[in-house]
Design a binder for these strands. Structure first.
Lengths: 350, 350
DNA sequence: CCATGGTGCACAATCGTTTGCGCTAATATA
DNA sequence: TATATTAGCGCAAACGATTGTGCACCATGG
């Protein structure tokens, strides 16, 4: 019942006999100098240590169950072997997906991932500040609301960073082609024969939302279809605001027959609103979402959605960051989205 | 265009004039010894330093933009101010929720969160090993598939840990009362007048799935209703297997009129399967899920589900761990679930 | 026999903090 | 006046690893 008895300090003292083995213990066991142990363990081919000695050292290390002390290593080498990931929320499907793949990728390269998130009340800077205080080797910033001035400040501090799912100036970034995604979604609805197509957007100050809206406009204008502020309702990526937006769209005198929503949650809300008003999907109103989240295909009426290669984006961000840290030249990466047609929009009017 | 030019090494050398300020610089600027700076900055009330000196030191620290070096601090104090969180997946709603709240809570106490996850191919041990190598101050283990022997090994290593959403032996754990949850869900269906109630379970080797199934049995037996292996189909928490399970249930000669699914995804799959077979929800078959995930309430037919206080669980795990690290006596925590009735099960047969 | 040159390793400094110990000077007590 | 006490702070040793420098030692070649 150790967890009922011991304080940190006590545990330490108890283990005073049982301490973690250090490089010095190995040196003693193998009859060499600590520095030799370090070189042998790190496989330095500079100072050629005879195989026999190397083996002896490895054996001693294994026997003593040596685990290098990362603090000492970092202090000396000035490398933490950690990258920081700033993410507003983890419960968001899109972000979680990118986070997970980034984490996996980082692990492949021996880097651990320190997360800072939950930018409660727009305190994203505090989160990033925290990561920098930890002296991570690099930063992946997926938070939408960083002031550009703050990015400049990070740049000045010399910590390599990349933006994820967000773009700003010429800073290296990994994003999806949201404009294209918006275009594809809208184009699809047009091809199904719709003439009045509404859009539930996200906050237009957020670049992803803005781009999708621009794609929507382009498709509409290209097809010479009606467009106007009443057909573009601004939401906040969440169900409640999207529900209101859908309400507004569906109660227009000239009701749209199709809705393109900025994300799947908003699309879901639109479908629910439609149902409440006695409108059938897709017969009365077709719906297209964005992100192709897990549930989209599982719904009783499966949701047409734009699939963004979120996993690719996460790992690409890590690759970009690592390149940056190695001083290689880097270019921002744009991932191409793809429309996944499903029942919610498959009712041809032509 | 720094990101096109500089390697890590070069950056360093460039900053050789511009180095991070250390405690020593402050000492020089304030005209005191480094040790005094340390004491002043850490607010040691032991050795009383006059306010005037403290102020001077703080001023110098601020001017030089001092940031303590966490590696040196950890090396010296043997505390990392980090806790490790082992989690199989981040894209899972339940886990993400717990993770996020844990992260927030940890931050409140000045701890950062190191994550290890993605136990690809059951390599959960590798993830945990990684966290231990990083020498985090404590561990929160939310991975389902740790062998108990490995837990014993962690215990032996002396690193404090708590289990999250999982129980094993007498180790401190934070869990939801899954048995009760399963009971509540089934009881609700019974009260709606159902007599033949099927269950789509998770893998019964996983404690949460097993507990929910036990709750189901208890409710059924208590009401003297039919029960049997054909009414309990085992899935794997995912849509595909749950779809198969639903298929099996709904094609029984004596078709159940209600289904309790082990999680919302499974419930969704069941609803979709029902719809494909031309069965209406809830008129022909009522469905209850588990976890009350975000989408549940947004569905065109909102899903009745068992709400588990996931956020509470995440932060409770941190609280438990911190208590443990401080040597306080701790007790495992069980959170009580609550049924949220919605349209998918609200069609009374009585 | 000495210069030359390579091995194989030890030495010691260093990274930036924290902290036990003890010194100095000022003040209080006898 | 002599001694005890205390405040204020400096000294130096850690913590555990990495790494530049250099010194023996041995072999080789002239």
């Amino acid at each position: 019942m150790w967890w009922k008895r011991m304080k940190l300090g006590e545990r330490e003292s108890m283990e005073s006999t049982n301490r973690k083995t250090t490089i010095k213990h190995i040196a003693e066991a193998a009859g060499v100098h600590p520095s030799t142990v370090s070189r042998a363990l790190n496989g330095l081919q500079e100072s050629r240590i005879p195989q026999e000695t190397v083996d002896r050292i490895h054996k001693a290390a294994a026997e003593l169950q040596y685990e290098p002390n990362p603090w000492a290593q970092s202090l000396r080498t000035k490398r933490a072997m950690m990258i920081g990931l700033a993410i507003p929320r983890f419960t968001d499907y899109v972000l979680a997906q990118m986070f997970e793949s980034a984490q996996i990728r980082a692990t492949e390269f021996g880097y651990d991932t320190l997360t800072a998130g939950a930018e409660v009340g727009g305190k994203g800077n505090a989160a990033i500040k925290g990561l920098m205080d930890r002296r991570t080797d690099g930063l992946i910033l997926a938070t939408a609301k960083i002031h550009d001035e703050y990015l400049a400040e990070i740049e000045r501090s010399g910590v390599p960073f990349v933006l994820l799912n967000r773009r700003s100036g010429a800073y290296p970034a990994v994003t999806g082609d949201d404009e294209l995604g918006g275009y594809l979604a809208t184009r699809h609805l047009i091809e199904q024969g719709h003439h009045r197509i509404g859009h539930i957007s996200g906050p237009l100050t957020v670049s992803t939302a803005d781009s999708r809206a621009r794609g929507y406009r382009r498709a509409i204008e290209e097809a010479d279809l009606p467009i106007g502020p009443e057909l573009m309702q601004e939401g906040r990526f969440d169900a409640r605001s999207a529900g209101d937006a859908a309400e507004a769209l569906l109660s227009l005198p000239e009701r749209p027959t199709a809705i393109f929503a900025v994300n799947d949650i908003s699309a879901l809300a639109a479908m629910a609103t439609a149902r409440q008003r006695g409108l059938a999907v897709p017969e009365d109103v077709a719906v297209v979402g964005y992100n192709d989240s897990e549930v989209s295909s599982l719904l009783p009426i499966p949701l047409t959605s734009v699939r963004v290669p979120l996993l690719d984006m996460g790992s690409a961000a890590v690759d970009l960051l690592l390149a940056l840290m190695n001083g290689k030249p880097v270019e921002s990466i744009v991932k191409v989205p793809e429309l996944i047609p499903r029942e919610s929009s498959l009712f041809s009017r032509s």
